[in-house]
């Protein structure tokens, strides 16, 4: 079982959490100007790396807050955890 580091509650068992998929997928800034391909990209297309992946978790059986984790999808090693809305550590500001 994965040990997920909740920023507020500390490391807890995976079974207390729900998974939210890729983090930092931003809603289109100006949705009325977005074409079908861009909607498809926002709604359906996702990164699927074999390696570090920034992903969302919610501590469903704990503090019930969403946050982000950077986890290696091959080794399950967690390298960062931070509140939702914060930038990915080490990533260039955009």
């Amino acid at each position: 079982m994965l040990l997920i580091p909740c920023p507020w509650c500390g490391p807890r068992a995976e079974i207390e959490f729900r998974y939210g998929g890729q983090a930092h997928v931003a809603y289109p800034a100006d949705p009325e100007t977005v074409d079908d391909a861009a909607w498809a990209d926002y709604v359906f297309m996702r990164d699927n790396p074999k390696g570090p992946f920034a992903e969302r978790w919610v501590h469903a059986a704990g503090c019930r807050r969403w946050f982000n984790v950077v986890r290696d999808t091959l080794t399950n090693e967690v390298s960062a955890w931070y509140p939702a809305g914060a930038p990915r550590p080490g990533a260039a500001a955009s």
Partner: peptide, 13 residues
């Protein structure tokens, strides 16, 4: 297993 993964193993729960 809900999280993405390439490790060919899952969680025991």
């Amino acid at each position: 297993d809900p999280p993405n993964g390439y490790s060919q193993r899952g969680s025991f729960h």
